[in-house]
Amino acid sequence: MRIGWIGLGAMGLGMARCAARAGHEVTGHTRGRPEHQALVADGGRLSPDLDAVAASAEILCINVFNDEQVRGVLYDEGVLGKLQPGAMLVIHTTGAPDLSRQVQADAPAGVEVVDGAFSGSPQQAAEGALTLMVGASDAAWPRVEPLFDAYGAFVRHVGPLGAGMQLKLLNNLLFAAHVRLAADAYRIAIDQGLAVETVAEVLARSSGASRALALLGARAVPDDLSSMRKYVEKDVETALRIAAAAGLDLKSVGEVARSFAEPGAS
Rank of each mutant, 00 (worst) to 15 (best):
L216H: 05
D115K: 04
K234D: 15
K230I: 08
L248Q: 11
I91K: 01
G95C: 13
H29S: 09
A153R: 08
Y75H: 10
V40F: 01
A10T: 13
Q69H: 11
Q84A: 13
P142I: 11
A257I: 08
A38H: 02
M88T: 08
P48S: 13
A246E: 14
I3Y: 03
V179E: 05
L203K: 01
I6K: 03
Q84F: 02
F154C: 00
I91R: 11
Y231M: 07
V90I: 06
G120F: 04
L74W: 02
V90P: 00
E35V: 10
R45Q: 12
R180L: 04
D76E: 15
E58Q: 15
V256F: 05
G12D: 04
A214W: 04
P108Y: 06
D191G: 14
G135S: 15
G95Q: 10
G86S: 12
A200Y: 02
A220D: 12
A20T: 01
A10D: 15
A183F: 04
Q192F: 11
P160K: 10
S100K: 05
Q69D: 14
P34S: 13
G4K: 03
K168I: 04
E233C: 02
G110I: 09
D49V: 10
H157R: 06
A214G: 08
E127L: 09
C61E: 04
P160Q: 09
A189H: 05
M88V: 05
F148D: 02
V144T: 00
G28K: 05
L203E: 11
A182P: 03
R258H: 05
E35M: 06
I190V: 11
A140W: 08
A177F: 01
I190T: 12
F175P: 01
Q102K: 09
G9L: 14
Q104Y: 04
G152E: 00
G44R: 01
T131C: 15
P146A: 11
P97C: 11
V221L: 08
H157W: 05
D51Q: 13
P146G: 04
A87F: 00
L99Y: 07
A244F: 03
I188W: 04
M88R: 13
E201L: 07
A189G: 11
L215I: 10
A244Y: 10
R219L: 12
L225T: 03
V26L: 00
A20P: 00
M228N: 01
D76I: 11
P263C: 10
C61R: 00
G14V: 12
L194V: 05
R101C: 05
V64R: 06
P85D: 10
L203Y: 04
L50M: 03
L170Y: 13
V114E: 12
A150N: 02
G193S: 09
P48I: 14
N66Q: 12
S100D: 14
V70F: 09
P97S: 12
G116N: 05
L132I: 08
G120T: 10
D191N: 12
A41G: 14
Q166T: 14
E68V: 08
A96Q: 07
A185W: 02
N172H: 13
A19I: 06
Q166I: 01
G28H: 06
L13V: 07
H36K: 12
L13Y: 02
